[in-house]
Simulated scan of single mutants.
Amino acid sequence: MPLKNRNEIVTNWLPRYTGEKLKNFGEYILLTNFANYVEKFAKWNNVPVVGKDKPFQCATAGNITIINFGMGSPGAATIMDLLSAIKPKAALFLGKCGGLKKRNKIGDLILPIAAIRGEGTSNDYFPPEVPALPAFALQKAISTTARDYKVDYWTGTVYTTNRRVWEHDDAFKKYLTKIRAYAVDMETATIFTVGFYNHIPTGALLLVSDQPMVAEGVKTAESDKKVTSSYVDNHIKIGIDSLKQLINNGLTVRHLRYL
């Protein structure tokens, strides 16, 4: 039968993209760009990874589902649209980013208070002047959990771009310095914006995986392995426990009325 409206499309496409039935998704979502994040979550909770042959792999334990939506703002917009089929209570993005300040070290965490919409994808949802903001109650839960782990973090603005290979571009790097962003990534602004469009409270916790403003800080296969072995476990665990804090306390993270 033909899909007649938006709701029918996302209801059909979320299982098609993930291989998971709608009824099996948790009410709280972890989003990631990395298959190993899903695999670790599944191993720790003794649950299967679903959709290994699909565009978006996922795993569900309790009331939390983790989804790997791939890399970039188009994928981020797609998963945020598709999640409207289940109307999750919160979606938390666990991403990696490039640190733009000398004080940012590899392995540091950044809790974005806003994102700059440099990717273009989010312009299909709101005019460019609409800011990309997280649900602050969700960011507060992340902050509390990080403190419980005795982990420090930076707060600031992240610049989201669709460009992947720009580390050689001095003009673009000067622009990043001028706008005073703390970090650069390819998804956060899109997730915040499209989440807001779909009435899904969203947040993000970013792991500094490289320092692209200097040649010796550009990510390599070897450096990425070191980040994964040293910092990824804590990144995922803080994300899980942040959502559990909301679940166990029965807190709502919706901070705005959608008009």
Rank of each mutant, 00 (worst) to 15 (best):
R180F: 09
S242H: 04
I79H: 00
L205W: 00
V38A: 12
M80T: 12
G203M: 01
N162V: 06
K23S: 05
L30T: 00
E20P: 04
A91R: 07
R163Y: 09
M1A: 11
G98F: 02
Y175D: 03
E39N: 15
Y149R: 08
H235K: 14
A137H: 13
R147L: 12
F41L: 13
P201C: 03
G26H: 05
A221P: 01
V47S: 04
D210I: 12
C58N: 01
N198C: 10
S84T: 15
I247G: 01
M71N: 09
Y231P: 11
G19L: 04
P212Q: 04
N162Y: 02
L22I: 07
V38C: 10
F56Q: 03
D53R: 10
A141I: 15
T65W: 02
G75M: 08
G70E: 12
N24M: 05
A59Q: 09
D169C: 14
G239P: 01
K105V: 05
K150W: 05
Y37G: 07
G98S: 02
T145D: 03
P55R: 14
D170W: 07
K96A: 05
V232R: 12
E167S: 11
Y17I: 09
I29R: 00
Q211Y: 11
I200V: 15
W154H: 13
Q211V: 10
V194E: 01
Q139F: 06
E216L: 11
T144P: 00
N198W: 03
T193V: 14
N104F: 10
D148W: 07
V214W: 06
T157M: 07
G98H: 00
T188I: 11
L22R: 06
V208L: 05
C97L: 06
A91M: 12
A85E: 06
Q57K: 15
A215T: 07
D152P: 00
A61S: 07
N33P: 04
L138S: 06
N46M: 11
I142F: 00
V50H: 00
P2C: 08
F126P: 03
A215L: 12
A181W: 00
D185R: 15
V194I: 10
A221T: 08
L14T: 11
A114Y: 03
L176H: 02
M71K: 09
K225W: 03
I240S: 02
L22P: 06
S223V: 12
T121K: 05
N33Y: 10
N24C: 07
A90M: 07
K174F: 13
V49S: 01
L82N: 02
L3G: 09
V165E: 04
D170P: 04
Q139C: 09
T32A: 03
V151D: 01
R254E: 01
P112Q: 07
L251D: 15
V227M: 09
I247W: 01
T202H: 15
K219G: 04
K140E: 13
A61G: 04
E119K: 11
V50I: 15
L246D: 00
V49I: 12
K4D: 07
N249Y: 05
A181K: 02
G203F: 00
V208P: 00
V208T: 13
P112S: 04
H168W: 14
